[in-house]
Amino acid sequence: MRAMTGKLHRTIKIAGFVSVLAVMAGCTELDRFHGFIPPEEELATLNVGSTTKAEVITLFGPPKSERGLQNNTVYYASSQFRRFGPFAPEEVDRQVLAIDFDANDRLRNISRYTLEDGRVVVLDRRVTEDGINDITFLSQLLGSFGRIDAGQFLGEP
């Protein structure tokens, strides 16, 4: 009987230790990175007045936003989000690189914006309508009961 109590005590200790490790792992800080900003060394190769828009797109890839191409500006953006445990992610770093071109598609200016600048740069606005029109899940569920035909439900022809 004493051996059984010792095994149970040991099992409880192990389970407690594993539980503490799981809780600690769930509360670790996680960083997620999104987007792309060209490195400074590659930006230094661009020449104001001579580098074309096509050369920039070939060198760095397609821009973050197609809207900027209409304004003769190419945008590249990156963000860093930090998540701690069950809390919502918080954006801790954002960089937006705006490369402006003149009417002849030649490089005019390179600007960099960060969270500290407080400047809003709208890259794209994509909104998908859900078509639900503020109906709750329960309302949808209860509304579907009136559309069930008893004959179809029982499998009658």
Rank of each mutant, 00 (worst) to 15 (best):
G151Y: 12
K7T: 08
G35R: 04
R67I: 09
R94W: 07
E42Q: 12
R94T: 12
D149Y: 10
G49R: 01
L30A: 10
L21M: 15
I135A: 13
E116S: 15
G143W: 14
L138N: 11
Q95V: 15
P63I: 04
S139H: 11
S144F: 02
Q80E: 05
A22S: 04
P39M: 07
T114S: 08
L142P: 06
D102M: 05
N104A: 13
L59A: 11
C27G: 10
D124L: 03
L123A: 01
F36W: 06
I57Y: 04
R67H: 07
E40K: 08
L154R: 08
R147P: 07
D117A: 03
S50P: 04
H34C: 10
G85V: 05
L138M: 12
T52G: 04
N72I: 05
E55R: 06
N109V: 00
A54R: 14
V127R: 06
E40L: 12
T51S: 02
T5L: 15
A25D: 08
E90Q: 14
E42K: 11
T45R: 07
T136P: 03
G16Y: 01
G151V: 13
G16I: 07
L123E: 07
R2P: 10
I148M: 05
L107M: 03
R82C: 02
L69K: 06
F60M: 01
A88W: 06
I135T: 14
N109G: 09
T28R: 09
S65P: 09
M24T: 15
P86F: 10
R125S: 08
V92C: 03
L154N: 13
T11H: 13
E40R: 09
V23N: 00
G16R: 05
S139G: 15
D149A: 11
C27T: 09
P157W: 00
L97M: 08
E156P: 04
T5M: 14
I132T: 13
R108G: 10
G35N: 04
R106C: 03
V120T: 10
F87D: 11
G146P: 03
I37E: 04
P39Y: 03
L123H: 00
E40C: 00
R106L: 15
R106D: 05
V96N: 01
L154A: 14
V96F: 02
N133W: 14
G131V: 05
T52D: 07
E90P: 00
V56A: 01
G146F: 03
F81G: 02
I132V: 15
V92R: 04
M1T: 11
S144H: 13
T128D: 12
T73V: 14
T136G: 06
V48T: 09
E66P: 12
L30I: 10
P157Y: 00
M1A: 08
A44H: 11
G85F: 11
I99H: 02
T11D: 14
Q80V: 09
F33R: 07
Q80H: 04
G35C: 03
T52S: 11
G143D: 14
R67W: 03
A98N: 05
V56N: 02
C27N: 13
G85L: 12
L142V: 15
G61E: 04
H9M: 14
S111W: 07
F145Q: 09
M24P: 06
F17N: 06
M24D: 00
S79C: 08
R147Q: 13
T128P: 09
D102S: 02
